[in-house]
Every structure is written in structure tokens, then in C-alpha cells.
């Protein structure tokens, strides 16, 4: 099986339903980046609904530079053996051989991620070919619909991974929400022009115009560092959150992890948010966007 074999239509509908089904089960939860079994255990004990296994969290990838690739399968295996919740792993954009390896490892979700160095500057992976569901990042509606067209079963904002700064995730979530709201106000005759302008599949543009939401769950990632950040993106429409560097780059990972899980559940209850925000040690330091040169911004990877 390769991505270049004869052209296929979309995967069987039942297969896609089962893939989106797991994304549905993760809603209302927090998915945490972990780099070893010990962190995975902390995340699970704190109530994470899934973990993302990776060798270096985004802020360290950013600091170290070099080419960031798929993680060591043995390290992913150790994490799988330690926790009972779903385990996700990242492959490079367009690197379908890494995706095949991660699928053979029976990981529960694959993140085709801009956090790693892209392998293909033109094509993303044809994700309908896989039994394991994929999550992909998006900065706007057109990008989200292109990824869903390729078979992504979940969309997340890209944000700016490893920055500890929520501004980009907010920008991407607001762009997505306002573009979806706009589509619901248009006439049927306007939708083909929208599909052309967005570079998005026409049938998916029509779906959004009719329903006002994506056909797959819509989560947020990139820059979430505090319980308040989690509540903010949830109130802006994210159905769950990914927390990367924010937990294990803080001074109190276990307590912060629990607080973020609770804030994700009680995202619209300020009394609970106040309670869980108290008593935490300082969060990760974070970066101003102006400190990150344009060419080092991860959100610009993929299209």
C-alpha cells in the first residue's frame, strides 16, 4: 500500500464513522504531550483523555533546532504499555511511510503535525487509506476542509506550538468560527465561488453552509499553558484541548494537569475556573510572537 497507488475514492463510510467516533469520545477532554512513561502516568492520573507520545515537546524542538522526525517506536510502545487511555503519535506532514509505521504500532490516533519538520512541501498524506484516524492542524476553514477531504477525522487549531502564547490559537479558532458562520448566510449559488476561493472541496463547503460546523470534531492546540487558556478556547468553540509544552514545562506538572482537565470540563463556570486557577506554581515562561522570527513559526507549515 502506498499513497501513490491507483486513485481511490473516499474510504468506506463505516470506517470513517468509526474513526470520527473515537474523536467524539475525546470531546470535553484534555490531550497531553508526554515524552516518557512517567509523564504519561502523571497525565492519565490527572484525568487526561489521551496522551500524545513524542520525544521532544515543541518548546524543546524549537530550542534545539535541527530536523524533527517521528518518535522512536520503542518509546511510543513504553507509553502504550503504561497507560490505558488512547495514545497518539506524530508523523511529519506528507511522510506516509512514518504514518504506516505508526499505524503498524497500533497507535490510536496519528497527528500529521507541523511541529515536526515537513517531509513534503506540496502534498499531505491521503488519510482515507488508513484504519487509524488522523488529526491535522488548520489555521482557517479552507485548510481544515482540505485536510478533511484527505480523510482527517479531527481538526485542531495549529496555534503556535511551544510558545506558551495563546494568541495564535485564538486567531485560528476565531477565523474558523467566523468563516463557518459566514457560510451559513450565503445562498447555494454562492458556494462554488467560495469553494474556489478557499481551495476547499465543494461538498464540504456545502456541508458547513448547511450545518454551521465541521463534519468532524474541532479541537484546539498550540500555546495552551493555563486553566484559563483552556477555558478560553473552549468558550470560543473548541470541543477539547491539546496541551503540549504547557504542562511539563511548568513547575508543577501534576497539579497543573488536573487544573487544566477541570477547566476543560467546567469551561463556562467562572467559580470553578477561579478555584482551579488558585495555588499553581508559575507556568511556562512563554514567548512573545515578536520574539519568534517568521521563518521559525510552525503554523506556517502545511497549507
Amino acid at each position: 500500500m502506498t499513497d501513490n497507488s491507483s486513485k481511490k475514492t473516499n474510504s468506506n463510510n463505516d470506517d470513517f464513522k468509526v474513526k470520527v467516533g473515537l474523536a467524539e469520545m475525546l470531546k470535553g477532554g484534555a490531550i497531553m504531550d508526554v515524552t516518557n512513561a512517567e509523564q504519561a502516568k502523571i497525565a492519565e492520573d490527572a484525568g487526561a483523555c489521551a496522551v500524545m507520545a513524542l520525544e521532544r515537546i515543541p518548546s524543546d524542538i524549537r530550542r534545539d533546532g535541527g530536523v524533527a522526525r517521528m518518535s522512536d517506536p520503542d518509546m511510543i510502545q513504553q507509553i502504550k504499555d503504561t497507560v490505558s487511555i488512547p495514545v497518539m503519535a506524530k508523523c511529519r506532514i506528507g511522510h506516509f511511510a512514518e504514518a504506516q509505521i505508526i499505524q503498524a504500532l497500533e497507535v490510536d490516533f496519528i497527528d500529521e503535525s507541523e511541529v515536526l519538520t515537513p517531509a513534503d512541501d506540496v502534498n499531505h498524506i491521503y488519510k482515507h487509506d488508513y484504519k487509524v484516524p488522523f488529526v491535522c492542524g488548520a489555521t482557517n476553514l479552507g485548510e481544515a476542509l482540505r485536510r478533511i477531504g484527505e480523510g482527517a477525522a479531527m481538526i485542531r487549531t495549529k496555534g503556535e506550538a511551544g510558545s506558551g502564547n495563546i494568541i495564535e490559537a485564538v486567531r485560528h479558532m476565531r477565523a474558523l468560527q467566523s468563516e463557518m458562520a459566514r457560510l451559513t448566510t450565503l445562498g447555494q449559488e454562492q458556494l462554488m465561488a467560495v469553494a474556489k476561493d478557499m481551495g476547499a472541496p465543494y461538498d464540504l463547503v456545502c456541508y458547513v453552509a448547511e450545518h454551521g460546523e465541521l463534519p468532524v470534531p474541532n479541537f484546539s492546540a498550540g500555546g495552551i499553558a493555563t486553566p484559563a487558556d483552556a477555558a478560553l478556547v473552549r468558550q470560543l468553540g473548541a470541543q477539547a484541548v491539546f496541551v503540549g509544552s504547557g504542562i511539563f514545562k511548568s513547575d508543577d506538572p501534576a497539579a497543573r494537569a488536573v487544573a487544566i482537565v477541570k477547566a476543560t470540563t467546567h469551561f463556562d463556570d467562572p467559580a470553578v475556573l477561579l478555584e482551579v486557577s488558585r495555588g499553581l506554581q508559575p507556568g511556562m515562561k512563554g514567548l512573545e510572537m515578536s520574539e519568534i522570527p517568521e521563518e521559525e513559526r510552525l503554523a506556517g507549515r502545511g497549507w
Binding site: 469520545m25 470535553g28 492519565e44 490527572a46 484525568g47 483523555c49 490505558s84 487511555i85 482537565v261 470540563t265
Partner: peptide
């Protein structure tokens, strides 16, 4: 509902 039972079990206690 469905979801992750470890998460739901913990949050049942915590809440």
C-alpha cells in the same frame, strides 16, 4: 455517555 472511563471516574469523584 461514552468517553474515557479513567477521566470520567476521576471527575465523578472530584466533582
Amino acid at each position: 455517555p461514552g468517553g474515557e472511563s479513567t477521566t470520567i471516574s476521576l471527575l465523578l469523584q472530584e466533582n
